[in-house]
Design a protein around this nucleic acid. Structure first.
Length: 319
DNA sequence: AAGAGTGCCAACCGCATCGAC
DNA sequence: AGTCGATGCGGTTGGCACTCT
């Protein structure tokens, strides 16, 4: 029995969001925090359905989202995780906290899938042993090792959604306030356009004033309460560099994830230099740690192999 | 210069899942 | 246990921008 639409279509606006709508939405979320999306349209007067509001926030307005070019490292992670998890973009996105599932999905469909096909095609045309046989790409990429690891994968994939619900970046108002606070404190003058450009908003290099408006609004709308809360949680000022560092994949081990008693992000264990030493204790703390650790090892090893093979076997470059 | 083709991405749609009652 | 509302998720699409002819 199909569900009725989340909201009737009468008077509901569709299509691209305007800067004014963004401001209204960000302002509301700054005050009330994300969630309770049903009430957002009625409370804000936005002529948008609740789903549209949620999507706009999670995919575009949410602080900390990185837009623009994907790094080679991000590409490798996506390729590997896609081969492991399939098109479970939300799960993949949980490993790249700066990227949204929509962003990753789009990037996969428009870039990575073509690259991989191109590589496979080139290998086949060369008459060499196809990559899909020698070192499978994408789904085939892990097919040979799939069987061996099936049980591990199933454990991992089965547990991912719930597990990452708790560790998903910026899913709480505290986190958002903290990030915005960090941005504010690192910006000598909040109103300086140059600073706004590199704020925690979603601005591209050539982004329009929309992002500036939003950044200014979000910064200006921070209350003293949220600042105090942020100070309490962070304990220290976060600079822009810290912010970037905080969300860089390579530095997950130092990420101050939610310090609220919830699980810490697996990568802060998995990427730790002394991961081996911690392994026993950590795995007791959370059994998924072993799987996460394995996943990372696999990601780096297998994708690096792919890249090496690719460099040897054809002129196309994946990255 | 202009029309056609293509790529890209923000946003929408509908189903799945979760949680409250 | 069943129902229903809210939210999450993945597939798809509309339209703009760019490239090609």
């Amino acid at each position: 029995m199909g569900r009725p639409p989340c909201c009737d279509n009468i008077g509901i606006k569709k299509g691209p969001w305007t800067p004014e709508e963004d401001i209204v939405l960000v302002s509301y979320i700054q005050e009330h925090g994300p969630g309770n999306w049903r009430s957002v349209p009625t409370s804000t007067g936005l002529m948008r359905c609740s789903k549209s509001c949620r999507l706009r926030w999670t995919n575009y307005l949410r602080p900390g989202i990185k837009r623009g070019n994907f790094t080679p490292h991000e590409e490798r992670v996506i390729i590997h995780l896609q081969s492991l998890l399939g098109n479970r973009w939300a799960a993949i996105a949980s490993y790249l906290p700066q990227r949204t599932d929509n962003d990753i999905k789009n990037y996969w469909n428009t870039h990575l899938k073509k690259k991989i096909n191109k590589i496979q095609g080139a290998a086949d045309a060369d008459g060499k042993k196809p990559l899909s046989d020698a070192r499978p790409v994408c789904h085939d990429y892990v097919s040979q090792s799939y069987d061996m690891k099936e049980s591990r994968k199933q454990d991992l994939t089965a547990a991912l959604p719930r597990y990452h619900q708790k560790s998903r970046y910026a899913s709480s108002s505290e986190n958002i306030s903290r990030l915005l606070q960090g941005w504010m404190q690192s910006s000598p003058t909040v109103n300086a356009p140059g600073k706004l450009k590199q704020s925690c908003s979603t601005a591209d290099d050539d982004d329009d004033e929309n992002s500036n408006i939003i950044s200014a609004l979000t910064a200006a709308s921070l209350t003293e309460k949220s600042q105090a809360e942020s100070d309490r949680r962070c304990g220290a000022t976060m600079t822009h560099d810290d912010f970037d560092l905080l969300h860089s994949f390579e530095n997950m081990d130092i990420v101050p994830w939610e310090n609220t008693g919830e699980e810490t992000h697996p990568f802060q264990h998995a990427q730790a230099d002394d991961a081996e030493a911690q392994l026993g204790a950590e795995s007791e703390q959370h059994p998924l740690f072993l799987l996460e650790n394995w996943l990372l090892d696999e990601a780096s090893a297998q994708v690096n192999e792919l890249m090496e093979l690719n460099a040897d076997s054809c002129s196309y470059s994946l990255f």
